[in-house]
Amino acid sequence: MATSTISAGKRPRTGSILLKTVMAVTGVIFVGFILAHMYGNLMIFAGKDSFNEYAHHLREFGTPMLPEKGFLWIMRITLLVSLVLHAASAFLLWSRAGRARTVRYVQRKGEWATFVKRSMRWGGVALLVFVVFHLLHFTTLTINIGGTYDNPADRLVASFGEWWAVLIYLFAIACLGMHLLHGIWSAGMTLGLNTSLDMAERLRLVAILVAVVVVVGFALPPVAIFLGLIP
């Protein structure tokens, strides 16, 4: 008598790998955004005018096919949805992991893994808080540092004249670097890219490379401004 083979109907609606996949895909979107954002920031080295032009151009990007700010809003909505999905998945997985081991070890080694795990979770929370601050600062202009200005470049230069603002941004950039270091590797794993020991090496390398580029790329403008290298 033949036996039925696997019944594929048991899949819970939100399997943990599915949640991971959501995190990976949204993470990749963020990486793309972050690299573009970084490129834009670096425009400040081409001079204030270039920077302002770039900022203005963002609003007109795609016109007349898109209405003014159309592209911007598509981006904003995409990023917002990604952020919500990314964070929600993270919190769900976090809580599942907590329930998977309710009695803790008396003694535990593996300090590095624990550090990375915590840096992803708490670093992620820190980034979330920072994003809110950053939006209030440069998008809604609710927070003003070093006075109010009517063009982006002046606002930028004025803000990073303040040492504490530079520190806040540098801390956030460090968090971001850590997050990318493990996040890019982890996204590659989740998306099935690590299929051999060689691929694992490459994936690690890509993660390190992107993280370093992002940290350096983002840290340059505030540091340069604070040191007075931008007129």
């Binding site: 991971k20 599942r96 992991a97 593996g110 493990h182 794993m189």
Partner: peptide
């Protein structure tokens, strides 16, 4: 719990099973 790709499992594995089997599984699931 879910996997966060930290690699502690593979480091503890007495048979040295590499992490790429997890990635393979994730890819297969997709």
């Amino acid at each position: 719990g879910g996997c966060t790709n930290l690699g502690e499992c593979s480091r503890a594995c007495p048979k040295g099973i590499p992490l790429n089997v997890i990635s393979q599984m994730n890819g297969d699931l997709l």
